[in-house]
Amino acid sequence: MNTWSTQYTFTPFALSTTDSLPDLAMINLSDWGMVTLVGPDSKSYLQGQLTCDVVSLSADKSTVAGHCDAKGKLRTIMRVFHYQNGYGLVQRQSVMASQLPELKKYAVFSKTEITQSSAIILGLTGTQAQTTIDSHFNGDADVRHNDTATAIKVDNARWLIITTAEQADSVITNLAPTATLTTTELWNLYDIKAAQPRIDNTTELEFIPQAVNLQAVDGISFKKGCYTGQETVARAKYRGINKRAMYIVTGAATQCPQAGDALERSVGENWRKGGTVICGYHYADDQAIALVVLPNDLDDDSQFRFATTPDALWHKLDLPYDLNAE
């Protein structure tokens, strides 16, 4: 039950592999949170912390970005956009307790106030999502504002909606009163099909950005100045030190793969650890799909399994983007 909602209830949406996605769904993204930065030094401060080029980010766009440690390992992946008088950073709630203090670590030397927001984050998805946004927000930008909410375009079928606890019910009533109201699992499915990387607390500080395809979703600028972890990220690009990538895999399953779970791969007649789950989705007909970080030199016909269900073999699916594109 959502503590902020007095009018609406969000329930899991049972979906089999043969079902179509809802034409319009409103998703309670309670496992996502937002950090805000306000102050004259916010832009330059983020420029020195994140993998994206914050300086060139216009007010009508958003971008994916990573925040790394000094060794280039990801603390989090976030969506960055101009918000109110500063910036909004949407990321997984599970990393907040460990990542936010690191983001704040050097802020004492800059004029920026970094705060975990109490905003409500909703997702609007489906073939009718764009039309719905166009009907309630002026303009054609990828980041739009009205009196009650901010809308951020994720892709052609998805928008993030940022609002307050006081306004959330009325936003749903006005924006999408006939939408299917559901929980974060549907958003996870969209992320998996789009091969959109994320970091949870179970995978924090495990991967460099290229190991989860951050460069393929325009989350890394190789032309900006220095930022935390840049040396490792640049070396992975120019010296080819990265040996992993994130893939979509699917197979039979009785439960949903969880972030941090280990996937085994076949090596001849033997099995060994092959990769780490980033995000999973379990269908109602006992099939599942997941994002998994694997070695990037595996054969296309490689087989995979979870040790808990050794008879259920999994295989890779095609990615929606080219990992080798410049």
Rank of each mutant, 00 (worst) to 15 (best):
M1Y: 07
S5W: 10
Q7D: 13
Q7M: 09
D19M: 04
P22W: 05
A25S: 10
M26A: 15
S30V: 07
W32V: 00
Y45D: 11
C52N: 08
C52T: 15
D60H: 08
K61P: 00
G66T: 03
C68W: 05
K71H: 13
K73V: 12
K73L: 15
T76H: 05
R79W: 01
F81W: 03
Y83C: 01
Q84F: 09
G86A: 08
S94Y: 00
M96T: 09
K104P: 11
Y106L: 15
Y106T: 05
Y106C: 11
T112Y: 04
S117L: 06
I121S: 01
L122R: 10
T131C: 05
T132G: 11
T132H: 10
S135K: 13
H136Q: 12
N138D: 14
A141D: 15
D142C: 05
D147C: 01
I152W: 00
N156H: 10
N156Y: 07
R158C: 08
T163D: 09
Q167P: 02
I172F: 04
T173V: 08
P177V: 06
A179V: 02
T182Q: 03
T183S: 02
L186I: 02
W187N: 07
D191K: 10
D200M: 03
T203Y: 09
T203N: 09
T203A: 13
E204Y: 02
F207W: 14
F207N: 12
P209L: 13
P209C: 13
D218G: 08
G219H: 03
S221E: 06
F222S: 14
T232R: 11
V233Y: 08
K237M: 12
N242M: 06
K243P: 02
Y247W: 06
I248Q: 05
G251H: 05
G251R: 05
C256Q: 11
C256V: 12
Q258H: 08
A259F: 13
E264K: 07
R265W: 03
V267H: 06
V267K: 10
V267F: 04
G268Y: 07
N270P: 04
W271P: 01
R272P: 00
K273T: 13
G274M: 06
I278P: 00
G280W: 03
Y283W: 04
A284T: 10
D299A: 15
D301P: 00
Q303A: 08
F304R: 01
F304Q: 02
F306D: 09
A307D: 13
A307S: 15
A312P: 00
L313M: 10
W314C: 02
D318M: 01
L323H: 05
L323M: 10
N324Q: 08
